[in-house]
């Protein structure tokens, strides 16, 4: 062993090398996603029309585009953490690494499309 103190030698050596980071982030994003999804459900119920012009104009408002972007960030971070646990529970060989990398690609790729679409509508011309 090294010459450091007992605490110095074990610090950061939890089972996942990162303590409660993952668990805590999952709880934080659970809370934020709860409020944002309730907002989305209420917004859908408040819509009187689901045609193109009506919905496009709706998403152009900053009061809609910003919470929608926050919803994507919060929910995608949350499901990225959740699916990681599912993969770690069922995949034990090398396929675990492949699945975790694919999960990151899926989350970031799909999230990028969502954010781009929201910004394109919000900053685009109105109808």
């Amino acid at each position: 062993m090294g010459t450091g103190t007992s605490l110095g030698r074990v610090r950061g050596l939890g089972s996942a090398k990162e303590g409660t980071h993952h668990w805590w982030r999952q709880r934080i994003t659970a809370g934020s996603s709860l409020f944002l999804m309730l907002w989305l459900v209420a917004s859908i119920l408040n819509r009187s029309s689901f045609d193109y012009v009506s919905l496009h104009g709706w998403l152009q408002s900053a009061w809609v585009a910003i919470p929608m972007a926050l919803l994507v960030l919060s929910v995608f971070y949350h499901f990225r953490l959740g699916l990681q646990v599912v993969i770690e529970d069922y995949q034990h060989d090398e396929t675990r690494i492949v699945a975790l990398v694919l999960l990151n690609f899926f989350t970031v790729g799909l999230g990028a499309v969502a954010i781009f679409a929201i910004l394109k509508i919000a900053f685009g011309a109105s109808h």
Binding site: V72, V113, I121
Partner: peptide, 17 residues
């Protein structure tokens, strides 16, 4: 929700954009 739900949401947003 994280697979079907997220793809549906992003499909909706991209189609609208």
């Amino acid at each position: 929700l994280s697979t079907v739900g997220s793809v549906l949401l992003v499909w909706f947003l991209a189609a609208l954009a």
